[in-house]
């Protein structure tokens, strides 16, 4: 997959506006009892929720269960959720909490399993196995995994969500509202600095 910076910026902008509007319509109709309209929200938000569950170090089967449980939990909370931003934030918060719960249970059951999970999460899942067609992607991920856990989690989510709602989502990470912008700036600057210093990576 390839992209050009200008196109990426423009399409990200357009996509984010479209997506917010689509999610708003889904949510409104689902709250009126038409649950099948959530199908579109599932397609839109699952890649993000998947990343959130995996960032907690869960293997694929457990991560799938956690994402599914979060959607099921959503049903009885639907009427309290008023905006697409709130929908995204609620699902991220719930996915993360469910992932902790599963991780804590695994830890209680078997320490050694959790240890291997955690080291896998740190290394970046599947990084070695998957043949990345673009060297630039590989270089980027290598530097990304050198960032702190907090930076990885925040940037991972920021990369997936619309610009207007990521402050809400970052709140779902339990960070003080005022620290989100500076933290994002610091993490992104750090990643950018490492990338620019790497001759194998060229700015797009």
């Amino acid at each position: 997959m390839s992209f050009v910076a200008g196109d990426a910026a423009m399409s990200a902008e357009t996509v984010s506006t479209d997506r917010a509007a689509r999610l708003a319509r889904c949510l409104e109709r689902a709250r009126e009892g038409e649950l099948s309209t959530l199908d579109e929200a599932v397609r839109e938000l699952n890649p993000l929720l998947w990343q959130v569950a995996r960032a907690q170090g869960l293997p694929t089967e457990e991560a799938s269960d956690v994402v599914q449980t979060a959607w099921l939990e959503l049903l009885r909370h639907l009427r309290t959720i008023r905006s697409p931003q709130a929908l995204t934030a609620w699902l991220v918060t719930t996915t993360r909490r469910e992932a902790w719960r599963v991780r804590a249970r695994s830890r209680a059951q078997a320490h050694e399993v959790v240890d291997s999970l955690e080291s896998r999460a740190d290394d970046g899942p599947g990084l070695d196995e998957l043949l990345l067609t673009e060297e630039r992607n590989r270089v980027l991920l290598r530097h990304f995994h050198r960032l702190s856990e907090q930076c990885r989690e925040l940037l991972g989510i920021v990369a997936e969500v619309d610009r207007p709602d990521y402050s809400v989502v970052a709140e779902a990470l339990g960070m003080p509202r005022g620290s989100i912008g500076p933290t994002r700036g610091r993490c992104l600057a750090k990643l950018r600095e490492m990338l620019l210093a790497d001759p194998q990576w060229s700015p797009p």
Partner: peptide, 25 residues
């Protein structure tokens, strides 16, 4: 533009390396 491009590349690369299972949706 560089920040936006890095974030977009991050999104694409992570989805390529660790995509949600096909049957999750």
């Amino acid at each position: 533009d560089v920040d936006v491009a890095i974030l977009e590349q991050l999104r694409v690369a992570r989805r390529a390396v660790d995509p949600p299972p096909a049957e999750l949706d």
